[in-house]
């Protein structure tokens, strides 16, 4: 079990709900992933339309916790307002904080992240800040009151997987007691395994599952590698070395010449 803000979660995989081929496939993928937490957003509702209500009732039927995001916000003010509106609609103090700084890379505006995180933490939110893998920014976010960190391993939707293992390793080493969730950039189940083997507490992904030819199968595959990576981390991984080491004992070897 894994603890986030006092909530025990069975799965270390957090799943996004966007870009699936259909609501039915989204629901099946969520079930196949075994996830306990899904991310959701807020968008403009069309008058008289009931799209938001339909989506919300589908999510509620899945029996998972929701983590609302502030995706698409480019300023502190927008992100704070969106967080407050999400708290009211989804009835949760959890918020995935995103203040986007660059249109092309969807890189977080880390200065805005810190400022918004301080406002929201002071207001009683449980903030899940999306951030880069920068160690100093991570420290600032913790200073602002964050109890969890969500560094990217590559740009959102890029499917590149961990591009800077050293930075991720450094974060894990510096913050042994802080739940660390890699959010964004995963493409393959093996990427999730690699991140979990580094000792990260969880991964959050969306596109890699939603855009797979078979999202349900891919959700199941990620679920397995997240578990495998976690168990491997807990079991003590062998350190690589540059020379061969025979696995069969040399003692007692027969001499034939």
């Amino acid at each position: 079990m894994f603890d986030l803000f006092g909530t025990k979660l069975a799965s270390r995989l957090l799943l996004g709900t966007a870009q699936y081929p259909s609501p039915a496939i989204l629901a099946e993928a969520v079930k196949a992933s075994g996830t306990s937490v899904v991310t959701v957003s807020l968008r403009r509702e069309i008058a008289g339309g009931r799209a938001g209500e339909k989506f919300w009732s589908l999510i509620r039927s899945l029996g998972v916790r929701v983590l609302p995001n502030t995706a698409g916000c480019h300023s502190v003010k927008e992100a704070v307002a969106t967080a407050k509106m999400a708290r009211e609609v989804f009835d949760t103090s959890w918020i995935k904080l995103e203040v986007i700084g660059n249109h092309d890379t969807l890189q977080p505006d880390v200065f805005g992240q810190v400022e918004a995180a301080r406002i929201l933490c002071d207001d009683g939110f449980d903030v899940f800040p999306y951030t880069t893998d920068d160690l100093v920014v991570a420290e600032r976010l913790l200073d602002a009151g964050c109890k969890v960190l969500m560094p990217w391993c590559a740009p959102i939707g890029s499917a590149l997987g961990p591009v800077n293992i050293m930075a991720l390793r450094s974060l894990r080493g510096h913050f042994p007691g802080v739940p660390l969730i890699v959010d964004a950039g995963l493409g393959r189940p093996s990427h999730a395994a690699t991140i979990m083997e580094l000792g990260f507490d969880a991964v959050l992904l969306n596109t890699a599952v939603a855009k797979a030819a078979d999202p349900v199968g891919m959700a199941r595959a990620f679920s397995k590698t997240v578990d495998a990576g976690r168990e491997a981390y807990g079991s003590g991984l062998l350190e690589p070395r540059d020379v061969a080491v025979p696995s069969t004992p040399t003692i007692g070897r027969a001499v034939f010449s």
Binding site: G16, T17, A18, Q19, Y20, L26, T39, V40, S41, L42, R43, R44, E45, A47, A51, G52, E53, F55, W56, I59, P68, N69, A71, T82, M85, E88, V89, F90, I156, G157, N206, T207
Partner: peptide, 26 residues
């Protein structure tokens, strides 16, 4: 504007109102 405060919120010409609802998100 929280739901409970909506009846007291008087509108003025040119006000910008956002009405947001749940949507898929990553």
């Amino acid at each position: 504007v929280p739901a409970a405060a909506r009846p007291e919120f008087h509108l003025s010409d040119g006000d910008r109102i956002e009405i947001l609802s749940p949507m898929q998100g990553g």
